[in-house]
Design a protein around this nucleic acid. Structure first.
Lengths: 191, 191
DNA sequence: TGTACATCAGTGAACGCGCGTTCACTGATGTAC
DNA sequence: TGTACATCAGTGAACGCGCGTTCACTGATGTAC
């Protein structure tokens, strides 16, 4: 073979990673196929050697966003005692760093409304990613029972995602911080 | 004149109202100029007799969405005693009806991430609409001081917007309701 | 009162442009004999 | 060992198509004289 056996797989993964970042920066229908390929050091024509359609790329890129989120949170919780973990997540999620860098942040804030309007295939795939996230994160959420932790996951995650979405549409950093701080302080103090 | 003096104004308002609904259903860059004009019983060519550009329509349509939201909430609170008003808002916002009808619902859930990526003119205009909403709604939010009510507005509004955004990307009605109910029950019980 | 002209919301075809997708081709490296 | 052919990731031009925008035109009604 002209390339190492894993070459094609690695190229595909590179494209998906670049698409995942571009999607969160420019929106679900923001980046064109050409722009994603260029960001990966390739040209448009090669795209269909890796993907059956642009939708296939979108689905994979959304999944990539979720898995980056899991990884980021998982690795930052390594040295945090179990009962403090949800607080660490809240602090990171509602930080100016996260708010100001959508491209490497949570895909739910950035893409949820657009995914809700997307093709059923994409919505179904995202729904199962969302459920997986709920199950994984619920275990370190506050609450005495599994039901309570699940409910608190939805409360905390909804509040965080909503807060970042609202903060991001305010151009003034001070206004952004006021929204983020309101929700951060409330969640940390009241749960 | 060939038309009544108010004819042009009314036509423009009709276009804006139709655009406001279409935007929330199909996204900020979903409906084309032709489709909005058609929905208003007109043809593409006439568009630039009313608007300088599509962006001008978008800005007006977003504002229209906010004003419909204010009106809807204002009129539903007429007969509700002041201290119960925020609960009424929570119940409506987190209802399946609202969740299942984005076109006539809150523009923040549907459009926030796309507006955050839009031109600065649009972002600035939306930011001031958002602040206006915060000021108007804060007065009937729970809390002893103005500062507390403002903070609680951001907490409640973030949680509601996030919950509806997440619920809407789940295709199963039962899953949607679980998210909505979690946040609804929590907010009504704990604030 | 009648005729010529002005106004202007609305029409519909045309314009570039960027998009997703297709396709004939390239060129480095493998295999067959 | 050398030559002919096969493979296949990647190239770049071309394709329809829908978009925002432009523009010459329409036709109902106003005003001037």
């Amino acid at each position: 073979m002209r390339y190492e056996p894993e070459h094609k797989t690695r190229t595909r993964e590179l494209i998906v990673r670049n698409a995942a970042r571009k999607l969160r920066t420019e929106g679900l229908s923001g980046p064109g196929v050409a722009s994603v390929m260029k960001a990966s050091g390739l040209t448009v024509g090669g795209f269909y050697k890796h993907f059956g359609s642009k939708d296939e790329l979108l689905a994979d890129a959304i999944a990539q966003g979720f898995s980056e989120l899991s990884e980021k949170v998982h690795s930052s919780l390594q040295d945090v005692p179990p009962q403090d973990r949800w607080k660490e997540v809240v602090r990171w999620y509602l930080s100016p760093e996260h708010c100001n860098h959508p491209g490497t942040g949570c895909p739910v804030v950035t893409l949820a409304p657009e995914i809700a309007r997307a093709k059923l295939t994409i919505r179904k795939r995202t729904a199962s990613l969302m459920k997986e996230l709920a199950d994984t994160w619920a275990v370190f959420m506050p609450g005495g029972t599994a039901k309570e932790r699940e409910r608190n996951f939805f409360v905390i995650f909804s509040a965080m995602a909503g807060a970042v979405a609202i903060a991001r549409l305010l151009p003034e950093p001070a206004d952004r911080e006021r929204v983020l701080a309101s929700v951060r302080d409330y969640l940390l103090a009241s749960l």
